[in-house]
Design a binder for these strands. Sequence first.
DNA 1: TTTGTATGATGAATATTTTAGTAGTAGAAG
DNA 2: CTTCTACTACTAAAATATTCATCATACAAA
Lengths: 221, 221
Amino acid sequence: MMNILVVEDEPGIHKFLKQGLEEEGYAVDVADDGHQGLALATGKSYHIMLLDWMLPGMSGLEICKQLRERHIDTPIIFLTAKDTIQETIEGLQAGANDYIKKPFSFEELLERIRVQLRNVKVSTESIIIENIKIDLNAHQVFKDEVEIHLTQKEFELLVFLIRNQGKVCTRKDIIEQVWDIHFDYDTGVIDVFVNGIRKKLDLDKETGFLQTIRGIGYLVR
Amino acid sequence: MMNILVVEDEPGIHKFLKQGLEEEGYAVDVADDGHQGLALATGKSYHIMLLDWMLPGMSGLEICKQLRERHIDTPIIFLTAKDTIQETIEGLQAGANDYIKKPFSFEELLERIRVQLRNVKVSTESIIIENIKIDLNAHQVFKDEVEIHLTQKEFELLVFLIRNQGKVCTRKDIIEQVWDIHFDYDTGVIDVFVNGIRKKLDLDKETGFLQTIRGIGYLVR
DNA sequence: TTTGTATGATGAATATTTTAGTAGTAGAAG
DNA sequence: CTTCTACTACTAAAATATTCATCATACAAA
């Protein structure tokens, strides 16, 4: 199930959106001031966020910028009365994915939400790569339909690498993003865990999809 | 270096878009009827496409649907006078990524194009020169679609030289930028690595794009 | 205890640099 | 025009350095 964060202070729209979106089957969280919005956005994982611009506490624009700075790439749609071209551009430059002016058609909003979800859908729910299936919700990994138990860190590492499919992840990237260590990149942990994953999933060092890029890091093909 | 396909029949808008986008540094192809548009869209690879809805031959909506059916996932922005909510939804459902109603602001269009390009950019960082393709994300090099393994330093050197395409890189430049050595420019390393690259990529000393400039350094044509 | 996570040591594989011999080039002198 | 000389580049192979996989083990949390 897809979950949506709505940050909106006007009680009328607030209620209308929550009800309308829930009827469509989305799980909706609502925040009615900027700080609460940012806190929810950073603390929990959403599939998409709808932001008003003018909010008590902190503006939607500011929330958007801060999220992008922290590399939280959840799609953001602005939903605002600020309707000039200049403001639209500013909102999009801040990192938003779409910008809808009030008053808006709920049907169009729904469709624009779906457009954004099309892009992320692939990377939520579950990922399949070769004979490996990864269920991101259940935190389960299957190899040829047989469940393979990965530990927490092994799972996180695998997901991180697969999410960056096609990009080389440097050791620094990995240690920062997966272990959240921002100094001393020089432990052998990564090697050990990669090794563990390869062993459990029976991935060949040479031919498997999880490749070593010597001197740099690792890459999922 | 992004290229855009514009499918639009009205000569005025047609010209205006081509010129405006080219001024922004995009490579623009224009088609003025539906069939030609589809042919270009399927035959060549674009980073983004702008489609009018009403077109002679085949509608933009139809083009969009056909492309999605063939799993061509290039971002599509509709740019059309069809301005009802119902039509907007129909356009987005057909697989478009954004829908802009005429008359539109060129500045806003530019920004919305950038939004779409943000998504693809990551996977598009590659350089092609003759029959050699260099994927900067995956750190991979292909010659005639076959992967050639270069070591870290070989890769760095090649990228450095290619990034300075057309400019002669002196030995000093190279040793400073690629090796980060700021004294003792007189080792034979560069020669050795150039030699290695030429060998692996099968570049002829005389005719290949990686040329020796005697007494100075090297040059990529 | 059991399970998950991190560290350190080892050796093998691979990358980088140095060295040295060969070959090619340009300018000067015969 | 040829030959000599000094210089520069090319190449292979040897020497050195780095990186990774693996194992054993230690520590921490459940």
